[in-house]
Amino acid sequence: APLHPVMPALVEVYVNSILVINNKGSNEYFNKPITEEEIRKVFRNSIFGVNFDSQNKPFTPMETDGESSMEINIEKPTLASQLLLIYYLLLYEDVRLTNSATLIANGRKIKSYSSAFLSELPIKYLLHQAQKDQMSYGGLFSPLLRLLATHFPQLSLVDDWMDDQVFGDTCRHQVDVNISDSSIHEAFQCIEENPYKTGKILKAMLNKNPTDIWPFSEIFVRYFKSVLGDEVPRHIQELYREVWLRLNTVLPRCLWIMTINALLDINNGSTRNVTITQENVLVDPLQVLRCDIRVFRCGPILKIILRILEASLAASRSQLSRHLLDKPLLEKSG
C-alpha cells in the first residue's frame, strides 16, 4: 500500500514532542518513545522474524519507567509500517544526538536505542524496497537516505549500492535444485572432488530472492574456509562471492560478523574459542584482518574482506562521532 504523504511529517512531530523541550518546560507535555519490544513485535511478524526471536537474540531492553509496553497484534506488517518505524528510529536518534547537550543541561534523562538493537534492523533492505517503488514511498526515501548516510555510513557504501542494483537487474537461467541445509552441506563437503555439484547449488541460490536464501546464511558462511582450498576452481570462488554479495543486501551487519568469525585464524593459539562481536569491530576495525592467511591468496574472498573492512572503518568513525555527541563537554558555570 502506498504511504500517505502526511505520515513522515507526523513522525517528525511525534519525535520532536518526545525530545524537544517546549516553552512550558513541563514533563507532562512530553510523549513517550516507542519501546524496543513494541518495535520488535512488528519485525518479528515480518520476513525477518527469526532475527527478532527474543529467545535467540538477546537485546538490551530500554528502560520503561515501570510502564508495560502496549499489546500489539500484527499478522503481517506492511512495507509502509516497517519503513515508518525505521524512519522513526533514525530520526529519533538524530534529534536526540543533536539536542543531547541541551537535554543533559536541563537534567532530562532520555532514552536511547541500543546499538545491538539497531544493528539487527533490516534498514538497508527496506530502503532498497522503497527505492524500487518511489511512486509509493518517494516522500520517505529521501529523508531516510539522508539519515542513513549520516548515522550508518557503513550501509551506504557506493560499491554496495552498485552491486545491489546489478543484482536487481540480472536475470539468470533457472536451476532446478532443492536448497536446504543438507543440500548445502553435501555440496560443500565435496567442493574439491566434485565442484560441479557445489556450483549447481550456488547458482540455484543466485536465482532466489535474497530474503529467500537468508535462512541458509549461517550454514553458507560456515564453509568459507572450504572455498579457500588450493584445488577449488576460481569459478566456484567467484560464485561464492556473488551469493555472499546477494546475502549482503538483507542484513549486512549480521553477515559481516558471521563472516569474520568464520574466517578467524584458529591455527593461532591466541584465537581459539574467540568470538568477534559487533562491539569488538566498532572499537577495533582491524579485527577483520585476523583471518586465515589463505584469504590473502584468494582474490574473490579477499574482496569480501576488504568490503567488510571498509564498512567497519566507516562504522567505527560513526560510533566515535555518536559517542562524542552522547557525552558532550558542558561548560561549568561560575
Rank of each mutant, 00 (worst) to 15 (best):
T60P: 01
C254D: 12
Q278D: 10
E238I: 15
P122F: 01
H235V: 15
R108T: 01
Q154S: 12
Q134Y: 06
Y14S: 10
Q174Y: 09
A262M: 02
Y125R: 07
R108W: 03
S321T: 08
S68C: 10
S183R: 04
F59T: 03
A80D: 09
F167H: 11
H173Q: 12
L251F: 03
E93N: 13
F43W: 05
E193M: 09
Q174W: 03
L309K: 02
Y87P: 10
N23C: 11
P285H: 00
G229Y: 00
I266T: 12
M135C: 05
G299Q: 13
A314S: 12
T198Q: 04
I260V: 15
A116E: 14
R246L: 11
F52H: 04
I260K: 03
K208V: 03
I184R: 05
E93C: 01
K197I: 09
F141R: 07
E75D: 14
L83N: 07
L91M: 02
R246A: 12
V50W: 01
Q165P: 00
F48A: 06
S226Y: 08
M205Q: 08
Y92W: 02
L239Q: 14
V6H: 08
T249L: 06
K32G: 05
V13N: 13
G107R: 02
N207D: 11
L140S: 08
V15C: 09
D181S: 14
I219C: 13
M258R: 15
K197Y: 06
V221E: 08
G25L: 03
R272E: 11
V50H: 10
E310T: 13
S54E: 13
P328T: 04
E193W: 01
N99Q: 14
Q174H: 12
A204L: 00
I123L: 15
T271V: 07
L247E: 06
N268V: 12
D212L: 07
E28A: 14
L263Q: 04
N99L: 09
E75P: 05
D265P: 03
L282Y: 00
F152S: 06
L19R: 09
T150G: 05
L264D: 04
W214S: 10
V166Y: 04
V232N: 03
F52I: 09
S217T: 10
I184V: 08
D284N: 13
I276P: 04
A1L: 08
N194W: 01
L83P: 03
L325I: 00
C298W: 00
I179A: 09
Q129Y: 01
Q237K: 15
K332A: 12
N22G: 11
P153Y: 00
N207Y: 04
L90G: 07
S318P: 07
E331Q: 10
I86A: 11
K303Y: 01
L286T: 15
D164P: 00
F188H: 05
F216Q: 14
I293P: 05
I305C: 12
K208Y: 04
S100M: 15
M258Y: 02
H151I: 05
P195D: 06
